[in-house]
């Protein structure tokens, strides 16, 4: 599903060069639940951003679902994210002006679907994450766990081949976090979707099928 071949990502901070990824080679097969761990500055988030087509490598090749991100251009990357990748963020990143059901339906709406197609699908996912009663609430009326469930539902609404989760439990208490991890595992195992989860938390990482540890932009052997 994801191939990183000798990927380097170098940022410039003032006059200093920061090697976020330094020759990383990593393959994530379709249907795998991968946890990516490592200390701060190890390149975890960069790995996630490059996987999601949010950024491009300085050198090396990143292939997502058989497509090289370097050749797609902005429109191609936008479509890739819109149709094949679901994102789950640490800070939930829900649209504060949209109701819960609208937040979930948003990616479909962005893809040109009408309410008739998008809303039933969003409602089905709402039921799946156990928030039917919160359908017409605004994000600021939800708890952290509820917001993250909505974010996962939003990520799943497009039937993505790949779900990228950036510290999805980082802002939640452990009981709520466990519920989210169960949900992700279920998505991976029952639906065969590829999940890549970046986390600091060893306990969270254990929910994954495989753990990749990064240090200084490389796989930590």
């Amino acid at each position: 599903m994801i191939r990183f071949d000798d990927v380097r990502k170098i940022y410039t901070q003032g006059t200093r060069e920061v090697r976020a990824l330094d020759g990383l080679t990593l393959h994530v097969p379709r249907g795998e639940f991968l946890a990516v761990m490592g200390p701060s500055g190890s390149g975890k988030s960069t790995f996630l951003h490059l996987s999601g087509g949010l950024d491009l490598p300085t050198s090396g090749g990143v292939t997502v679902d058989g497509q090289s991100t370097a050749t797609l251009g902005d429109d191609g990357l936008t479509l890739l994210r819109r149709r094949k990748i679901g994102f789950v963020f640490q800070f939930f990143n829900l649209m504060p002006t949209l109701r819960v059901v609208e937040n979930i339906a948003l990616p479909l709406l962005l893809d040109g679907n009408g309410n008739g197609a998008a809303v039933p699908k969003a409602e089905a996912l709402l039921e799946r994450v156990g928030l039917t009663s919160r359908r017409d609430h605004f994000p600021d009326e939800l708890s952290g766990g509820e917001m993250q469930r909505v974010a996962i539902a939003r990520a799943l609404v497009i039937d993505p081949a790949l779900v990228l989760a950036d510290e999805p439990t980082g802002n939640l208490d452990s009981a709520t976090g466990r519920g989210i991890l169960e949900l992700l595992k279920e998505v991976s195992e029952k639906e065969g979707r590829t999940i890549v989860m970046v986390t600091h938390d060893e306990a969270a990482a254990k929910w994954a099928k495989r753990i990749a540890r990064l240090r200084d932009g490389k796989l930590d052997a």
Partner: peptide
């Protein structure tokens, strides 16, 4: 800024 970034992340095009 943050919302626009989010929209872009989940697939909104520049034109949208």
């Amino acid at each position: 800024t943050r919302e626009i970034g989010l929209l872009r992340a989940i697939g909104a095009s520049r034109t949208q």
